[in-house]
């Protein structure tokens, strides 16, 4: 086993790991923010809201994330030359980068999977509780905020923890659109040094550690949250 390359690449690796982690955190937050309305629309929305929400979740869950990332990055990019004004727009400095597409693809993917989870969670809250809330004179919004959403979240939390680990496992795909995450750094070590297995093994250990931290974090939140409800 050869490990002499580690000191040389440690700064790059730290940067890459940081990029992986903020991509993960931001995409989970944005994705979850989208998943709540997606789940609610499917669980209780009128047909014209429920149907598009269901379709969105089906399409996201039915196609590979790698393909979604490439469609967003290269597919959209291939349309740019037809619209020259895009390069003059204020958004161009952002559209030129690769990470916005990575973040968008990861967020939409998380939203698709969690929209389905939240649908089930919203549906599983007993109707009687909601009716009780209304009987107390809560407004519709207050019923949602104080009864429906917390109960659904408590039910969804164990699943969300697992799904967030799955999201972590999906992040290395962004390396294929030039985002330099921790996986891309390991690839660079392989290219520079022709050492194949060691960087991959270290990478596996790093992902396991992060996955462990995520699981631990969710367990702590779960314990607090569920106790708070009781």
């Amino acid at each position: 086993m050869r490990w002499g390359w580690i000191p040389r690449y440690a700064p790059l690796a730290a940067e890459g790991l940081w990029r992986t982690i903020w991509l993960l955190m931001l995409s989970v937050i944005i994705g979850f923010a989208l998943a709540v309305p997606l789940g609610l629309a499917q669980a209780a929305g009128p047909f014209w809201l429920a149907a598009p929400a269901r379709w969105f979740c089906t399409v996201i869950r039915g196609t590979p994330l790698l393909l979604q990332i490439w469609l967003l990055y290269y597919g959209l990019g291939s349309l740019f030359p037809q619209f020259p004004w895009i390069r003059q727009s204020d958004l161009w400095p952002i559209l030129r980068q690769a990470w916005p597409y990575a973040l968008l693809a990861l967020s939409l993917s998380y939203a698709g999977y969690e929209g389905e989870v939240m649908r089930g969670a919203f549906k599983s809250v007993p109707r009687g509780q909601l009716e009780a809330g209304r009987a107390f004179g809560f407004s519709r919004f207050a019923t949602f905020r104080r009864i429906w959403f917390p109960q659904a979240l408590a039910r969804a939390l164990p699943t969300l923890g697992g799904e967030t680990v799955l999201q972590l496992k999906a992040t290395p795909l962004v390396a294929t659109i030039t985002v330099i995450d921790i996986y891309a750094v390991a690839s660079r070590v392989r290219q520079d040094t022709f050492i194949i297995y060691e960087p991959l093994l270290l990478l596996a250990v790093i992902y396991m550690a992060v996955a462990g931290l995520i699981a631990l974090g969710f367990r702590m939140v779960e314990r607090r949250f569920v106790r708070g409800l009781g």
Partner: peptide, 11 residues
């Protein structure tokens, strides 16, 4: 090909 494609896209 993908590098060329991003050249075309202007990225």
């Amino acid at each position: 090909d993908e590098a060329n494609q991003d050249l075309v896209a202007g990225r």
